[in-house]
Every structure is written in C-alpha cells, then in structure tokens.
Write a protein that binds this DNA or RNA. Structure first.
Lengths: 326, 326
DNA sequence: ATGCTGGCTGAGAGCGCTCTCACGTCGGGG
DNA sequence: CCCCGACGTGAGAGCGCTCTCAGCCAGCAT
C-alpha cells in the first residue's frame, strides 16, 4: 500500500534509477525501447514522483503562491477582480508547468503563516494580491529572498515589481464621459485612502475636474454598499444641486443608487451615476450601471509572467462600459 | 545568500544537528540553557526548516488541500458558501497546525493537475468542495490512497465521508413557511439535476407539497440569475394563478423577482418569493429577500475536522431568514 | 565500590530523488 | 588496426532533515 518509488520502477523495468529519472523528466538521451519499457512500468505501478524528494535536490518547488492579503469575505464578494486574476495566473502558470497555490492572509496570523509557508521552500515565488498598498507582506517576503510580484502599485516605497491597472486613467474616462454629456456638478464617492485603487481613482477624478475648471465634491466610502449609501446621502446634503456622481466602486454605486432613489432623484435624468469594476450585477442594477471595466484576466497573466521572468512593472488600461445610469 | 541549514545553526550554537532539531520541534528533553542558545542561533540566522527535507523523512506535509471543483467564476460569485467554507477550514486547520492550500480544478486539465499535485505528497489530505455530486475527482483521489472528505453528499455511490447541509430540510422549511402564510399554488425554480443541492432542494419542495395535498409546479434553472428569470417566465405561463415561488438559489430568486416585476406582479402581495443561500445582496433586493441560510462556516470546520480525524459523515441544519419577499 | 537507572546529547542511517561522472559500446577516421 | 569521440547507461554522492540508538554522566541503591 506504500507508494512506489523510482527504485521500484527501475527494478520492474530492468534499468537503473537514473534512467527512470531521465524518462520521467523527459530527457532525450534515452533509447526508444527503454523509454517505452520504463513508461509501461510507471503506468503499471501508478508511479508519481515524490515532490519532496525532488524539491530537496533541485531546490525548486515548481509552484508559485498567489496570496490574497485580504479577509475572505472581500475576496469572495461580488467582485470579478480576484476571479480574473486567479484565472489569468493559472493560465500562465499552466503554460510554464507551475502549480498555483492560493493562500488567504487575512489576519496577522495569516501573514505569519504565509511567511512561514513561502520561506520554507514550498514555492518558487509569490504573487501578492493586496488591495492595501501599504501592506508589509510583499517587502517582508522580498527581504527573505523570495521573488515577489505585487498586484497593484505598492505604497510602501519599495521598488518591487508590480502589475497595476490604470486607475487614474479609468477615473478620468468616467469623469470625462460625465463632462461630455453635459453634467456640471460632478461629485465623487472615493475609496478608502489607504488603498491604491482608492487614491488613484480620486486623483483621476480631481485632475480631470480641475482641468475643466470645475470644483470637486468629495465623500469618502469604504468600497461597500452601505458606505456608498451613506456617502451619497452626505453628498446630497453638501450639494443638493449635484447632477452626477462617480463612485470608485460598483458596490458603492449600488448604495448610491439606493440613496438617490430614496431621496427622490431620478437616475440618470436628475443625477448620472458611474461606478467602477463592472461587477456581475452591474447590468442588473436599476438602472443598469455605467461603469469602468478592468482587464483582470490580463492582469493575472502579466502577474505570473512577471514572476516567472522578471522585467518592468506593467500598467494596464481600462474600458468604460456605458449602460443607462450615465 | 543561501538559506541556513540545521547544520549551520548547530555549529553556531555549538551543539549537534539532532539537538537543534529537537528544539525546533519542541521536544521537552532538552536542557534549558541549551534550548535558549539554540533558539538564539535560530533567530540570528533567520533559520526556517526546509519543508521538503522534513516531508521526505516524515512522510507528512502538514498541509491539506481544499479543492474547488468548479470554474472560478462560480467560486467567486456573490455566494457566501465558498467563503464560509474556506474560513471554517482555515480555522480548524490552524488549530491543528496544518496549512491550507486552495486549488481550483475547474477544467479537466485542472482535475489532472490537482490529482498530480495531491498524489505527489504535497498534502496529507484533500477536501473536495464540489457542487456537482457526480464529480469523479474525490473517488479518484481516494483510490490513490489519499484521505478525502467531500463537501456535499457525493452522487457517485462512493462511501466517502462527507459534510452536507440539510437541503431537503431547508427546502421544507421554506415551503412550509409559504404554506403557513396561506399560499395555495406554490411553484419552484429547481437547480440543475446534476447537483446534489438542486436535487435535494427539489425533493424537499416536493415532499412538503405532497404531504399537504397540493401539486408541484416546477421549472428548472441553472442557479444563475438569467436562469431564474427564464424559469419564472415559464412558470407564469404554465400557471398564471400561482401565488408563491421557492427558488433553489438566491440568484435565481433575483431573476424571478425581475421577471415578476416585468409581468406586473407585486411581491409579496401577488406572489411570495423565497430564495436559498442568503447571499450578501439578498437584504438589498427589492423587496428584501426571504431566504434559507446555511451554516457555511461550520461546514468548513466540520470538513476539516472530519479529514483530520475520520468519523461519521455530518449533516448540518439550515435557518429560514424571513424578510419581506415572503 | 560496583552496578543500574534515568536523563540528555551526538552519531549516523536513511527518506526518494537528481545529477555528475565514469564506464562501456559502437562507428568512423587516421 | 588502433584510437577517439559520441552516445547511452549505471554508480554513487548528496539535498536537509528526523529519529533510532548508543553513549555519557549523574545519582542512587546494593
């Protein structure tokens, strides 16, 4: 009942361990008839290489970790970002014959666990998908000598390679759309100021308005629906005459929609609303939400590619999806 | 720049490899002053045990795999099930000092990858969270001699241990609630017939109606919003006089709500609607959705517990959450 | 004094694999 | 005819760790 070893396979095929190893690893310097014999033995015995033994000598694990430095509730919300990243990373890793190991490092204990796991030789590199730009984890891993790539520009001043989405540009395109459709008083519901996405989208909003000579009307949300609801109410109070809102996330936009409805404002007639992320339920909002879509799959691919063969950081463009809310 | 080994630590602390190993692994038979000295050496060198070497001799990996046998898009949808399971598993694994490795086995290639990974000694056991009860993966792993626990009763007839949620009971409680509030013509939007959750919820619906002498009105959905929308339309056509719908998932309930609205039916006045899952957006539906909540966190805990110390399969109870839609 | 027990420590044998060498065994050129 | 290179194979040394077992030194009973 014990798992067959190289030795067993070798004995069965009537060759040496080394030869079996060569066959298993696809070396070309093995005579055809021997290769066939070995493969049959492997098949018959159901041999699977012991990865621990292999790693021990090669010093490679042939797998990479994809760490989500967020509480699971956020990772598994109605947000396509993570799903896209995972798919992209998996695709690229597959192509390079690497295994992807997902880890959640929500708590501080999680951080420690992840650090131990990744430094103990389980993986050849780590992709940290952290929304909080000031996360200490990436730098900590890098210090340990582990290759690291960040999803989202790190706020820690470290020079780690990263892949980010053009948040500034995305916000700009949204606000410009509002401007071009004749809106005059454009408010924003910004994200948390400790997240790159929040900061950059606010920057894009601000600069675009400034360029057009209009003033900013800002409320801070936390990327959640309730946060968006509250922020919208405050915005309405601050400037009852506003005619458009750019929310830094679709969730907040959904909350804003609700607040607007409750306040008796029609969307888009009285107030235009644009969100960010293009979550699955955006098309089903009332009215269907105009939003900024991000190339999450591509982000995942670039992340993996950057980890596998180091190079320059990458910034990906966004796409404005116009529906009915603006 | 190379990682320190046991040997290095031993040399620095002036003891043997064996002693360092003892200290690192928390053996009690080490003299206090030596223990302290070794710990200092470990600290100074930043020593982290090489897991490959350790696994090689212990034949343990000290980690377990949590495999999602679904496409990522489903895993990362607005569905708290997976998040709850993951948190529960993590909690329990943490307590047992095991590492949790998440894997997605959406494609058939994914299956193969997962099988290779888990059989190559990377993990001590596998939890398969598959919604498709007929998934061949669990049995395949078990055949390989790897401990396996399934989330959801397997439909393959295998006798693998599993943890499931009382889908029949959950459906019963929903239908009974409808019955008790005076509804007479209660329809259902069932889930796909190849998923245990779909099958069992339909069973619960049917038996409850039969017991009360009423007839079933059934449409099949696919657990998606669009599927729910279509199914609701068909139901309306089949029996325009229906006054209640039990949808086997909240997503389908959301679609049904939309179809009902479009058909000019008021909820709950004309038609009562109950969903299943209690997704995060259920309270924000219009009207807020009455639904069946599942103990997903506990499910995760039981799953891990069952894997770590084998025992009887477990079935967990549900809870009816009454809001305004029914 | 001698023998014994009990508590700690070190020596050393592997765990299953890869990879470097050395070792045939051919074939072709000198 | 011999030598040399190319090619294919096997022997063997580890990779870094755990764990058994032997060894040592006290301390106690005999």
């Amino acid at each position: 009942m014990t798992r067959p070893t190289l030795e067993k396979v070798a004995a069965r095929a009537g060759v040496s361990r080394a030869t079996v190893s060569r066959v298993v690893n696809g070396s070309t310097t093995v005579a055809e008839h021997i290769r066939v014999a070995v493969q049959r033995a492997v098949e018959e015995l159901g041999y699977v290489p012991n990865q621990a033994a292999r790693s021990l000598v090669t010093q490679r694990a042939d797998s990479i970790a994809l760490v989500f430095s967020e509480p699971p509730v956020r990772v598994f919300s109605d947000d396509p970002t993570f799903a896209g990243i995972i798919r992209g990373v998996s695709l690229e890793a597959d192509a390079a014959d690497k295994q992807v190991v997902l880890m959640l490092a929500g708590s501080s204990r999680g951080h420690e666990r992840v650090e131990r796991y990744t430094t103990s030789g389980h993986v050849d590199g780590v992709i940290v998908a952290s929304m909080h730009g000031a996360d200490p984890l990436p730098a900590a891993l890098a210090r340990r000598g582990i290759p690291v790539v960040c999803s989202g520009r790190p706020l820690t001043g470290s020079s780690l390679p990263y892949v980010d989405i053009d948040n500034v540009g995305g916000a700009e395109s949204a606000v410009r759309h509002l401007l071009e459709s004749g809106r005059r008083r454009i408010a924003t519901i910004a994200g948390p100021p400790d997240m790159v996405a929040g900061i950059d989208r606010l920057t894009g909003y601000r600069s675009t308005l400034r360029d057009s000579g209009r003033r900013s009307i800002i409320a801070i949300g936390d990327f959640t629906r309730d946060g968006g609801f509250d922020a919208m109410n405050q915005l309405l109070e601050d400037d009852p005459a506003l005619d458009a809102v750019f929310a830094a996330s679709d969730m907040m936009a959904l909350g804003a929609l609700q607040a607007l409805r409750r306040a008796g404002r029609r969307v888009p007639d009285d107030v235009a609303v644009i969100g960010y992320d293009d979550i699955p339920s955006a098309p089903y909002a009332d009215p269907p939400l105009t939003t900024v879509r991000q190339p999450t799959l591509r982000m995942g691919r670039e992340l993996a590619r950057l980890l596998l063969n180091p190079g320059e950081s990458v910034i990906l463009p966004t796409e404005l999806v116009v529906r009915e809310s603006a």
